[in-house]
Nucleic acid binder design. Structure first.
Lengths: 197, 197
DNA sequence: CTTGAGTGCGTACATTTGTACGCGAAGCGT
DNA sequence: ACGCTTCGCGTACAAATGTACGCACTCAAG
C-alpha cells in the first residue's frame, strides 16, 4: 500500500541531507498552521510526506526538531530582511518602505510572521530557542540602525516588532497609510517641528 | 488518600463561583510556567488543588478554559494598566514613567508578561482568543493616546508591545536608561531639535 | 556471489491526554 | 420526613503521542 511510496521514497540513497531539510521545512509549515503545540512527529511526517519513523530518525527528540526548524526559520527571515534592505535604494523613503514591509508581512508573508512570533514566545519557555529569537532581534536592530542611528534603530526595531504583531491580529487590518504615518512619526518626530524634505 | 481532601473540598457547597475562578487562576499560572501547550486538565487541576473532574465540570472543553483564563488575564492586565495611569501625576515625565513600567513588567511582573504574550500568539491560531488580545491592544492605544495624541498613542502602544517582548527575551536585560531613552526619542523626536523641558 | 556494516524506516508499546458517564451529596418543594 | 432535581466530582475509556526496537534494503569489500 504505502510500501510503494515508501520504497520509492526510500530509494533516496543512504545519505540524503535533503530528507532532513524537508522534514524541518515541514515542521515550520506545521507551526504556521497549528502553532507550536501542533508540532508532533506524526503531523510533521504527514506534512513532509515522509513516514513517521523518518522524523524520529533524523531528529531524536521533538525538541531537537523544534529547535532546528525554528532556528532555520529565523535565519531565513533574517536573510530575507537583509536582502530587502540591500535592495532598497539609498535615497528611498524609509518610512514608506517600512510600511510596505509590514504590509507584506501581514499579507503575503503572513505564515512567516506567525512562525516568527511563535518562535519568539516559545523561546520564553524553552531556553534552547533563545539563541534563534535573539538572532532575530539583533538582526532587526542592526538592520534598522544601519539606515539611521543606533537609537533610532532600536526604536524602529521595537516598533516594528510590536506593530507587526498588533497588525497581524487586528481585525480590521490597518492600512498602509496608518502604518506609514507611524513610522514617519517615529523617524522624524512630532509633526509640528520641521518639514524635512 | 485524596478522598479526604476531595471530600473536604467538595464541601464547598453547590454553587461556588470561587471554584471556577480558582481554576481559571490556576490555568493562568500554568500558562505562565509551561506555556499554552502545558495547559492540560490535569495540570490545571493540580495547580488549583482541585480534582480532575472539577476542571472538566466547570469548563466543558479545554478551549473554554483557555479562553476564560486568558480573557481574564488580559482584563486584569488592562485594569492594572489603567490604574497605573490614573495614579500617575499629570505632569510626570511620561518617558521615564513608561520605562519604569517596562522594567516592572520584565522583573516583578514577568509572569504576567509571559502570559500576555502567550495569549497574544495563541490568538494567532485560535480565533476565540482574538477578542481578548484585541482588548489589550485597544487598551494600550487608548491609554497611551490619552496622555499625548492619537498618533503618538499608537506609536507608543506598538513600541511598548515590541519593546517589552524584546526586553523580556534579551539575555543581558536592557537597562532602565536605555528604555527611557527610547521612549524619550519616540515621544519628543530626534534629539537634535529642541530641548523641551 | 557472499558477507558485513550501516542507513533508513515500519511498528509496537507505555504514557499522557481529552472527555463522557455515573454516583453520591446538597437543596427544596410537599 | 421524603422524593426529585441539580450540582460536583471520581473514574473509566478511547484516542493521540513520544520513543525504542528490529527489520529491510543498499553498498562495498573480499
Amino acid at each position: 500500500m504505502s510500501n510503494n511510496d515508501a520504497a520509492a521514497t526510500r530509494r533516496r540513497g543512504p545519505n540524503d541531507p535533503e530528507r532532513r531539510a524537508r522534514i524541518a521545512k515541514a515542521a515550520i509549515e506545521v507551526v504556521a498552521q497549528r502553532g507550536i503545540d501542533g508540532v508532533t512527529h506524526r503531523a510533521v511526517a504527514a506534512a513532509a510526506g515522509v513516514p513517521l519513523g523518518s522524523t524520529t530518525y533524523h531528529f531524536a527528540t521533538l525538541d531537537d526538531l523544534l529547535e532546528v526548524a525554528l532556528s532555520e526559520a529565523a535565519a531565513k527571515n533574517v536573510r530575507a530582511l537583509k536582502e530587502w534592505e540591500s535592495a532598497l535604494p539609498p535615497d528611498a523613503d524609509f518610512a514608506a518602505a517600512l510600511a510596505d514591509l509590514v504590509m507584506g508581512y501581514i499579507n503575503e508573508q503572513y505564515r512567516d510572521t506567525v512562525v516568527e512570533y511563535d518562535l519568539y514566545v516559545a523561546a520564553l519557555h524553552r531556553p534552547r530557542l533563545r539563541k534563534a529569537s535573539a538572532a532575530w532581534d539583533d538582526a532587526l536592530i542592526a538592520f534598522f540602525g544601519s539606515r539611521t542611528d543606533p537609537l533610532t534603530g532600536r526604536l524602529l526595531a521595537g516598533l516594528f516588532c510590536g506593530l507587526l504583531m498588533q497588525a497581524a491580529l487586528a481585525d480590521p487590518r490597518p492600512t498602509l497609510e496608518e502604518i506609514e504615518a507611524l513610522f514617519r512619526r517615529a523617524i522624524h518626530g512630532p509633526a509640528s517641528r520641521n518639514s524635512r524634505d
